[in-house]
Amino acid sequence: MFRVRALPTIVAGALPCAERETCAERRDAVDAWTNGAWIVPATLSLCVLLLVSAGCGYQDMADQPHYEPLEASEFFAEGQASRPLISGTVARGHLRIDRAFFEGQVDGKPVEVYPWLAVARQLGLLADGAESQEVDEHVRAQILERGQQRFNIFCSACHDRTGSGQGMVVQRGFPAPPSYHSDRLRAAPVGHFYVVATQGFGRMPDYADQIPPADRWAIVAYVRALQLSQHAEVGELPPADRAALPAEEDTP
């Protein structure tokens, strides 16, 4: 039906053979090989190869032997590959010389003057190497925008988006924080808000790990803006904002 014997002849003919007998022997050997004798040694060697590779340890390229962030590790006592900062050490670029900026208070007294320049620098809002490091209105607006964004991420859960202290978590039973719009907090120095965010206050936990210092200061700036928003006089608004207000009812 099918003539599958043609191939060996060609292969055998390609072999160099000096004498007739040798050539015939080789031809027989090649015939046997191409007829399937190779299966037995090939299977055996494949089995051996598999066994050896299994014994040597199978390495998955998708999960290579290096640590990813926060991966579990049996080497360290608490079972975590990512290491906390060793106490008494300073990571490169994290030296905190400006204590007023990083702690928000000097000798236990909250900072009174908002550190615009340091905040703008830390947030990367000033051009590198520029001689006049001026924090103009444009840069201040960017700081406020950053503060608004960060406030809504980290603070609004409790303080709500207006700062009155009725956020969703408070509505779920967390003790309500004081409103930003009280006379006491409106008179509080800027450093006070920074210190509270850094160290916590009462039931409020500290946010030092979640919010970097410059963002904490940006939030402080936005808290000031919120306070202003609840006590602004209509007459002080720019015409564009005044036009956006709902028309007041005329009293006859």
Binding site: I153, F154, A157, V169
Partner: peptide
């Protein structure tokens, strides 16, 4: 439900 931001 609570409305926390991913980044919190």
């Amino acid at each position: 439900d609570v409305g926390l931001d991913c980044r919190y």
